[in-house]
Write a protein that binds this DNA or RNA. Sequence first.
RNA 1: GCGCCCGUAGCUCAACCGGAUAGAGCAAUUGCCUUCUAAGCAAUAGGUUUCAGGUUCGAGUCCUGACGGGCGUACCA
Length: 548
Amino acid sequence: METYLQSRITDALLKVGVEQDNLPEIKIETPRVASHGDAATNVAMTLASVLRKNPRQIAQDIIDNLELDSQKITAAEIAGPGFINFRYSENYLYEQLHSLLESGDKYGETEDFKGLRVLVEFVSANPTGPLTVGHGRNAVLGDTVARLLEWSGADVDREYYFNNAGRQMRVLGQSVQARYHQLFGEKTELPDGGYEGEYIQDIAKQLADEYGESLLQEAGEEVFRQKAERAIFEEIGRTLERMNIKMDSFFNEHTLYEDGSIDRTVQAIREKGYAYDKDGAVWFKTTEFGKDQDTVLIKSSGEPTYRLPDIAYHVHKLERGYDLCLDVFGADHIDTYPDVKKGVEVLGYDASKIDVLVYQFVTLVKDGKPFKMSTRKANFVTLDELMDEVGEDVTRFFFLMRSPNTHLEFDISTAKEAGEKNPVFYLQYAHARIQSILRKVKEVSNDAWQMPAKEELNLLQHETEKALIKKLLAFPGAITAAAVSREPHKLITYLNELASAFTSFYHDCRILGESTGLMVARASLAHATATVLANGLTILGIEAPDRM
RNA sequence: GCGCCCGUAGCUCAACCGGAUAGAGCAAUUGCCUUCUAAGCAAUAGGUUUCAGGUUCGAGUCCUGACGGGCGUACCA
């Protein structure tokens, strides 16, 4: 419909005398106030200064030259300072509703990103401990944006990037080793900066159960590191599964060393003249890109900083042929992103294919106060603990509810309320309620719901019915908007409006007890609403229950 | 100091890359269950969009400057 209006308006503009080269971009938007119509454009106003004419006059000229199909649009009128408002015909609504019903669980899919190969890299927590609440927002955002892109036609892979070498992991191994020795009565201290979480003791205990005392002979921490890594990855895998997240691949940073990518990357940056040696370290000339200081690529110890493998990794992604590499990470990592892009660019790759979704931090709140759920000495709350406390659906929903670039206050008191206050249930309840009605319809008519003919939908004449249809038709656009801006909360806002439009309809129009024709038409409308709710919840990774 | 994000109703947040009368939920007040799920609906109240300038037909949105909060600014990841 949008493209239809755009082409009609373009034709009218040409007739009015606007030159081909001066055609403005024609924006079609949905007015905030329903009384303003179903679609509107502001072209007349944007043209006012160019044509040096009164915008309302321009609008009138455009309307006079518009050739609209009355089967689709019934009215085009001037309003306010020069908006042109359009109204959809009933026929158009019924036609669209009918095709929605035909699409069923595919309704909402578009081809906006058709053919685009996307790699979403997210979570990417190193296996040093269980996933925390902070990782939770990352995981859910990444997965949901991936789903949004998939619904928009993109070909999406999900990847988890990790590093199982380096100092952090050695300390992890040492920590487990220390706990293991303690289990057998030895007074071994945790290493400096060791991991204090209770899970370290759990892993040590597993090892004791499995191997008895035999590991006491181990001199180094390597065995413990390996065991810890495996145990932690298993737990992370279970957590992700619980959250409805399935990775396509896990990428080990180590492979970049093995295949020589790291060395080649440094070499290439040197050759381009963007790297130099100083104080035994290798530096990246980030000052040339407007930074205050140059940054270190390889420490004087010979170990690279994370920037170098990050650059090599992104080159690797691009070489795999992705058109879009989307990284999801927290606000604390934002500073590395320009360096990586510049590095990739210096190496001759198209850095514009790399995009980043940055999210702000999460604060847990309970009864109005910052809340620490964990009694463990380690200073974090795990995702599993959170899900145990409030449930999987609520967890996903709360992480998605807000715009990624504002701080998220996760109110556990609200999340735990199974009822009125909890916004997740509003959507699920609407779905369950519709299913309940449809079950009753089936009893009455002794027949399952069937696809109605288009004409049968003509009985939907009530204002709340038409408002609901219009809301349903906005679903694909809502997905696209959320996918383009990578903001899943836009979809939630839409679904809330949809559920609200449904309850207005439910309040004003009965389904059972009406004549057969009207009952069929309304049941179809309810069915369509349930379909859209279910599709929307699927994208959010949340259940759409049939009963509550 | 510098960079990024944020500042909207008592609280938590929306506002479709500059549009028409700034909207939801929670909290408050009131009304609605012998008819399809009241986990709901309807209504009332709540705002100088932190402040001061600027840009233009038009600003919560863009620019400048204050003020306030978060995160960075490592030879940590």
